[in-house]
Design a protein around this nucleic acid. Structure first.
Lengths: 151, 151
DNA sequence: ACTATATAGTTCTATACAGAACCAAATGCA
DNA sequence: TGCATTTGGTTCTGTATAGAACTATATAGT
C-alpha cells in the first residue's frame, strides 16, 4: 500500500470529519437551547423511516453505541418528544414512538433550517448533492458491512 | 425550496455523520487506550502541514471551538507528544511543536492502521476516493466560507 | 427441561466537548 | 498617550459520549 494512497483515505475521512463538524454546528445553531444534533437526528429518523422501532435498531441506524442511544432517548422522553413503550413481542426490548409534540418540533426545526439549506444550495448546487450521495452511501454501506465482519 | 431537495441535503449530512462515526470508531480501535481520534488528528496535522502553529490556527483547520482545542492540546502535552511554547511574536499566543515521541507514536498508529485501509480499499477503491475528494473539499470550503460570512 | 450463550437495555464512571464568561496582550484611533 | 476594541487563550460548568460491567429475558443445544 503506497503512502500516498493511504494519505488519500486519511484526507477523505478528514474532510468528512470537518464537514460533519461544520454541518452539526450549523444545525445546532437552529435547535432550541440545550438541544443537540444527535437528538434531532433521532427525531427526524422516527418520522422518515417510521416509529415503533427498538432503541437498538435506532442505534444501529446511526452506528452509535447503544448506551449512547439510551441517553439520547431518555432526553427526548424527558422532554415529551417521544414515548418509549415495552415491546409486547420481546420482554427485553422496547419500542420508540414519536409524540405529536415531537413531530411538531421536528417540523419547526426543519422549517427554520430552510434558509441555511437555501444558502448552501447557492454555493453547492443540488446536482452535486445528487451526484455525491450514491458514492457516500456506498462507502457507508461498505464500512457498515466491514464493521459487522470485524465483530 | 422543494421538500425533496431539502431532504437530499439532510441525507447528505446524515450519510456524512454516519461515515464520520464509523471511521472514528475504526480509528480509535487502533489508538492507545484512552487516546481519542481528535488527539490523533492534531498530531497528524502537525506532521502533514508542519508544526510551529498557533492553537487557534489548528482549531480553525478542524473547525472546532478553540476551547476544545485547548483541551486536546493539554492532553497531548501531558503525554509528552507535543510542546507548547510561547510565541515570541505575540504575547497572547503560543506555538505548538510535535516532539520526537509524538512523531514516533503518530507513525506507529498510521502503520497499525494500514490493514484497515487495505480492507477498505478492497471494497471502496482508491479511484472512488480520488473522485470524491474534490467534491467534498468544495463542500467543506463552501461551508467554511459561509460560516465565516455568518459570523 | 436444563444449562450455556446471546441479546436488549441500563448503570456506573471517566473523559470529551462546547457555551459563556473571563484575562491578558495587541491593535485602532482620537 | 490614553481608551476602546479585538484577538488568543484559559477557566468554569453542564451535558454528551462511550467503555465496562451489569440485569433480565430469550434462544440454542443437548
Amino acid at each position: 500500500m503506497h503512502e500516498s494512497v493511504m494519505s488519500d483515505y486519511f484526507r477523505l475521512f478528514n474532510e468528512i470529519g470537518i464537514i460533519e463538524q461544520l454541518s452539526r454546528t450549523m444545525l445546532e445553531a437552529r435547535l432550541p437551547p440545550g438541544f443537540v444534533a444527535a437528538q434531532f437526528t433521532v427525531l427526524n429518523h422516527l418520522v422518515r423511516v417510521g416509529d415503533g422501532r427498538t432503541p437498538l435498531a435506532i442505534a444501529q441506524a446511526f452506528q452509535v453505541p447503544k448506551n449512547s442511544m439510551t441517553h439520547s432517548l431518555s432526553v427526548l422522553e424527558r422532554e415529551g418528544l417521544i414515548e418509549v413503550r415495552k415491546n409486547p413481542q420481546d420482554g427485553r426490548s422496547k419500542l420508540v414512538y414519536i409524540t405529536d409534540s415531537g413531530r411538531t418540533l421536528r417540523q419547526r426545526i426543519i422549517d427554520s433550517f430552510a434558509p441555511d439549506i437555501a444558502r448552501i444550495a447557492d454555493g453547492f448546487p443540488h446536482e452535486h448533492v445528487v451526484r455525491l450521495l450514491p458514492h457516500l452511501e456506498e462507502l457507508r454501506k461498505f464500512l457498515d458491512a466491514d464493521r459487522d465482519a470485524r465483530n
